[in-house]
Structures are given as C-alpha cells and as structure tokens.
C-alpha cells in the first residue's frame, strides 16, 4: 500500500473515498482491504483505472457489485461538491481580489467558471436522480426490469463537462492579461489540473466499469 501512494500520490483522495486512513506500516493492499472490509478486486479495479488509461477490468467485472461502484461514485461527487469546487472558488476569488485593472477580464473567467459549475452540478444531479437509482433497482429488483430503458439511454456523454474544464485552463493559460498574483494563479491552476485529471478518471470508471457491468446484467435479464 505504501508503494501505491508513493508511486501516485494523486490516489490519496481515492483512498479517502474508501475510508482508508494513513499509517499503513508495512501492510499489503490485501491486508488493508481485509482490515477495512473492502472488496479487494473492487479496490484494485478502481486504483488501476486511475493508474493506467487503457486498463479495463474484463475478468474482475463479476467479482463485485455495481452497487459498490455507485457508492464510490457518490462519494466522489460529494468530494467535488464539498471540497474541490469550494476550493476552486476561494482561489479564484483571491485572484480576482488581487487583479487590479485586470478585474473585468477575470470576472469573465469567473462567469465562465460559474457556468461550468452549473453544468457539472446538473450532470451530477442527473446521475444521482436517474442513472444510479436505475442501477440500484436493477440489482435489487431484477424481476421488475422490463427492458424499456437501458443504461445506454441514461448515461449522458461527459464530453461537455470535460470540454469546459479544458477551456477554462486554456483561457487562463493562453489568453489572460498578465496582471495577476503569480502564486494565487498557480494554485488555482494546480487545483484545476488535478480536478481535470480526477474527473476524467471518474468518467472512465463509469464508462469502463459501471456501464459494461450493467450492460451485462441487462443482457442476462433479457435472456
């Protein structure tokens, strides 16, 4: 477990979502999962998705329930809403406060950010009110499934949300007037970069693990 964190410290928030606390000593991933009652295959599937973009857990798909993924995705949403977004806003406010004559331009960036946030929250809301309950029903009451809807009908493209966070980065990096506080701006961009990485991986977990798993369930039910 120590090696895992040393190799990729971006996994720290991921471990938090599993409720894994620091102070690993020399325990292996298997031991820690056992201690904290975490499904090891599931843990590995998530961590591997973060570590390598091509990873696809074909063989392990059946070894854990889609409910676990949903639980995990919800925790990630919470992390965005209660930690990352407020942090970005605070940092952006700091830049604006120190921007002097650049004030107007930065207000535009702020307006863009707010628009982005709105879409992101809509997306999260949509998943939590439609996609996740659909999967939960499918698992709990497979008998009631009529096949009228499928996971593919629900799962909206993530592209718009991803596109906008990338635009936010480019607007600041490429087109900002050079009147701003260096450190404030660096911190904000670092947060944006990390967030972009996390949210891309988050989307991949949905596309590479949740969706195939649910499609398999649907196929079995359809006979």
């Amino acid at each position: 477990m120590v090696h895992l964190v040393q190799k990729n410290h971006n996994l720290l928030p991921v471990l938090n979502r599993f409720g894994i606390r620091l102070g690993f000593k020399d325990k292996t991933i298997g031991e820690i999962c056992k201690d904290t009652s975490i499904n090891t295959s599931f843990f590995l599937a998530i961590v591997n998705t973060y570590n390598s973009p091509e990873y696809f857990p074909q063989d392990e798909l059946q070894s854990f329930s889609p409910l676990l993924i949903i639980q995990y995705l919800k925790k990630t949403h919470q992390y965005y809403q209660t930690y990352v977004l407020p942090k970005m806003e605070k940092q952006l406010d700091l830049i604006i406060a120190g921007s002097g004559e650049n004030y107007k331009d930065l207000q535009l960036i702020d307006a863009f950010y707010k628009k982005y946030k709105e879409e992101l929250l809509n997306h999260i809301q949509d998943e939590e009110t439609h996609v996740f309950p659909y999967v939960e029903n499918l698992v709990h009451h497979p008998g009631k499934w009529k096949g009228a809807f499928k996971i593919m009908d629900f799962e909206k493209q993530h592209t718009n949300v991803e596109m906008q966070i990338n635009d936010l980065k480019n607007l600041i990096i490429k087109y900002l007037n050079p009147v701003y506080n260096d450190n404030d701006c660096n911190e904000f961009l670092t947060t944006v970069f990390n967030f972009e990485k996390d949210i891309t991986d988050h989307a991949r977990i949905e596309d590479a693990i949740l969706v195939p798993q649910v499609m398999k369930l649907e196929k079995e039910l359809a006979g």
């Binding site: 628009k115 982005y116 596109m163 906008q164 990338n166 635009d167 480019n170």
Partner: peptide
C-alpha cells in the same frame, strides 16, 4: 485558439 465550448 484551442477553445471548444460555446461559453469558452
């Protein structure tokens, strides 16, 4: 210009 979204 490297910007894709309409709002961007």
């Amino acid at each position: 210009i490297g910007i894709k979204s309409i709002s961007g």
